[in-house]
């Protein structure tokens, strides 16, 4: 245990540590707390400069209702789901197969293909922008959900393959070998032996990739433009331009947009961190 467990320190240190914790959280999250506090104020409060005092009236329900009734926020959230869910499923499926191939077969190009997936995962989005936009227009997919779904599947497959390959490498080879000796086909080996073993890893991966895709902003700007397909990140940014003065509504919108990945994180925390810290202990 490092640093030394605090229980072994003096009572005074113990008490100050426990007092310092909540204070540090408030300081760390201060910008966010300010936004959440604003989202329950009335416009009058904001105009009168009451940003930090007790709200003169609680507008929690009103503000959040207004976000959904007077803006396309509901549509944006729906679009984000329509884009994110199939994209996550696609990435996980493609990368589990690719990861299996790279982890359990020995062939010449193996390490180079693996390196290509990793390198592709690091390239700046901008070097892809113009060609991907052109391709999307040529495919007739510009300004549709599919424009984003297909791109996200392709791009995230780089990271996901890295992830799945490193997980599958650790699985016992003996099982696969003995199935081969029995004459089981390669596909059946994948389906009946590998797939059940990688289930926990796919859960971690899905949670992580869901957040990455949900939070994407750049491609939402480049590949779609109408309210009917725009995901919540681009939608929120558009609303910011329209309601320059209505900070209470923008704040409420920001809280709503942030909620789905936050809920996912709190319910699947273990998986999420396992995915993110891959390599941090043995990299």
């Amino acid at each position: 245990m490092y640093p030394r467990p605090i229980e072994k320190a003096s009572a005074f240190t113990n008490i100050s540590y426990r007092v310092a914790l909540p204070i540090s959280i408030v300081l760390w999250l201060l910008p966010l707390i300010a936004v959440m506090a604003t989202s329950v104020r009335s416009l009058d409060d904001i105009n009168q400069g009451n940003y930090w005092g007790w709200p003169s009236e609680w507008m929690l329900i009103e503000n959040y209702t207004q976000v959904f009734t007077s803006t396309p926020m509901f549509q944006y959230l729906l679009n984000s789901l329509i884009i994110t869910l199939p994209a996550v499923a696609g990435c996980v499926a493609l990368s589990t197969m690719a990861g299996f191939a790279l982890a359990k077969y020995n062939f010449k190009a193996n390490i180079w293909i693996f390196a290509t997936f990793i390198a592709g995962n690091f390239v700046p989005f901008q070097i892809l922008m113009i060609p991907v936009r052109d391709l999307t227009i040529q495919f007739g997919l510009y300004d549709t959900h599919w424009a984003l779904i297909l791109f996200h599947i392709a791009f995230q497959t780089g990271f996901c393959t890295l992830f799945m390959r490193n997980f599958i490498v650790g699985l016992p080879t003996e099982l696969i070998e003995s199935a081969r000796v029995e004459g089981v086909s390669e596909f059946k080996i994948f389906w009946h032996i590998v797939l059940p073993l990688v289930k926990p890893a796919t859960a971690a991966l899905a949670v992580l990739v869901f957040t990455f895709i949900w939070n994407d902003f750049f491609w939402a700007l480049v590949l779609v433009q109408s309210d009917e397909v725009r995901p919540v990140t681009a939608g929120l940014s558009a609303l910011q331009g329209q309601w320059l003065a209505s900070w209470q509504l923008i704040s409420a919108g920001a809280v709503v947009a942030a909620l789905p990945p936050v809920i996912l994180f709190f319910t699947m925390q273990r998986h999420f961190i396992a995915g993110l810290t891959l390599g941090a202990t043995k990299g």
Partner: peptide
């Protein structure tokens, strides 16, 4: 802060 979108 890492979980929420950079737009937020």
């Amino acid at each position: 802060p890492f979980v929420i979108s950079q737009v937020v």
